[in-house]
Design a protein around this nucleic acid. Structure first.
Lengths: 221, 221
DNA sequence: CTTGATCTATACGGACCGTTTCGTTAAGTC
DNA sequence: GACTTAACGAAACGGTCCGTATAGATCAAG
C-alpha cells in the first residue's frame, strides 16, 4: 500500500490550554508528527472485521472509526476512498496467501492454483474485500481506475506466469497467453460475483480442461 | 401517454389551493384500484434518465421519485429493491434490442452477437443498469439472488442457443456447451466491469477464436 | 354506497457522508 | 529548553438517502 504522504494539511487549531484529563489508558494519542502504527493496525483490523461481518453493504467509515476507536479524519487522511481501504485489507492478507504451483503441466497447475485462490476468497476476508472493490468500481470512476491500473495487474501476474511458463514449455501458443488469461480471469470473476466459488471441485477441473484445450489446439504444429 | 385528467385538474394540493393553470405538469392521481400505467412509465423513464446521467453511485429512490413526480411509496410498492428497478430498466430496452444471428457457423454467430451486445451495453442505458445490478448484488444478498435466479437465466438463453445449435451441427461437443457458455459469459462480465467494452473489435474475434477452438477440439472424433 | 387498492405529498427517525473545529500529544528542529 | 510541525480522538456540521408511516383524494368493483 502506498503512502499518500502529502504534506498538504491544514494547520492544527490554535493552541489553548485546559481540559478534563481523566481518561482510560486505552486512548491512542498522537505519537508526534508521524503516523502511529498502532492506529493504522487498529483501523485495518476494524475494516477487516466489519467487512467480514457485514459485507459491502454494511461497510461504513463511521463504523470503522467507532470500532477502531479512531477519528474519521484519521481514516480519510490515509485512505481517501473506500476502495483504498479495501485494497489495503486485501493486501494485508495476501502476504501469507497463495502458493503458485509449477508442476510442469498447465492443467495441474491451474487446478491447484484455482483451488487455492477460491479457498482464499471463500475462507478469509479478502474475498469480501475483492467483491466490495469491484462493486465500488461500478459506483465511482476513481475506484474503477484504481481497480484496473493498480489492483488488477498485481493480482494477475501470478496467473500470467503459469500461462507464460506453459507457453515456454510449448504447451500452448505464446500468442494465446493473453486471451486465455483474460478468459480464465473472467470465469473467476463470474463465479465470485454470482456467489459460486464453493461449487463442485469437478467444475474447476472441467473448466481448466477447456482452457488448456483451447491453448493446446492453437499451438504451431 | 394518456393523461386521464389533464382537462379539469381536480385541485392540485390542498382543496383551496388555486392557480391550476400555472402548474406545468399535471398531477397523476390514482386511477382507482389498479396500477396507473402513466405512473409506471414516468418512474421507469426517470430511473432510466437518472441511471444514464449519474450512474450507480448517483442513483437514489428519492431522486427517481422527484423526477417522476411520484411518491416514494408508489415506487417501493412495485419495485421493492433497487435491483428490481434496474432489471425493469434493462428489460424495457431489451425488447427492441439484440438480434440473434444464425449463420450456421459458431464463430461468425458469436462475433456478430457479441458485437451487438457490446454496442447495446455501450450506447444505451441498459449497460449501466447491468453494471448497477451486479454492483448491487455484491451489496445485498437478495439482489444477488435476483440476479442469479431471475435475471441471468433470461439473459443467457440467447447465447446458449448459439452454442446448442452449434453442438447440434456437430461443431462442438454437447458436453462442453455449459462450460463454454460460462467461460464466455465470464469474459463478457470482465470486460464490462472493467470498463472495456469499447476495445478493438479484433479482440472479439480473437476471443471467439479461442472459445470455438476449445469447443472444436473437444468433439468426439 | 361501501370497500379497497392506488395515487401524491409530507414527515419521521436513523444512518452515513465528507469536512471542519478543537484541544492534546509528542517527535523534530534550533 | 522553546518552538514548530503534524497526527491524534472527539464532536459536530449540513447534507443526502434510506425505508416506513400517515393522510387525504381518486376511482373501479361489488
Amino acid at each position: 500500500m502506498d503512502e499518500p504522504s502529502n504534506g498538504d494539511l491544514p494547520g492544527p487549531g490554535p493552541a489553548s490550554a485546559g481540559s478534563p484529563e481523566c481518561e482510560h489508558a486505552a486512548r491512542r494519542a498522537s505519537i508526534g508528527a508521524r503516523r502511529n502504527p498502532a492506529t493504522e493496525a487498529a483501523i485495518l483490523e476494524a475494516a477487516r472485521g466489519l467487512l467480514a461481518e457485514k459485507g459491502y453493504a454494511g461497510f461504513s467509515i463511521d463504523e470503522v472509526a467507532r470500532r477502531a476507536g479512531a477519528g474519521k479524519p484519521t481514516i480519510y487522511r490515509w485512505w481517501p476512498s473506500k476502495a483504498d481501504l479495501f485494497i489495503a485489507v486485501y493486501a494485508a492478507d495476501k502476504a501469507a496467501a497463495i502458493a503458485v504451483p509449477d508442476t510442469g503441466d498447465l492443467a495441474d497447475d491451474l487446478v491447484a492454483y484455482t483451488t487455492n485462490v477460491w479457498r482464499f476468497w471463500r475462507e478469509s476476508v479478502p474475498g469480501a474485500a475483492f467483491r466490495a472493490l469491484i462493486a465500488e468500481a461500478q459506483a465511482t470512476g476513481s475506484a474503477l481506475e484504481v481497480l484496473r491500473e493498480k489492483f488488477l495487474p498485481a493480482r494477475l501476474c501470478d496467473l500470467e506466469s503459469l500461462f507464460t511458463h506453459a507457453a515456454a514449455r510449448g504447451e500452448i501458443a505464446a500468442d494465446d497467453v493473453e486471451g486465455l488469461l483474460r478468459l480464465y480471469i473472467g470465469f473467476h470473476w463470474f463465479q465470485l460475483l454470482t456467489g459460486r466459488i464453493d461449487e463442485d471441485p469437478a467444475l474447476i477441473a472441467r473448466m481448466v480442461g477447456l482452457i488448456v484445450r483451447a491453448g493446446r489446439s492453437g499451438r504451431p504444429a
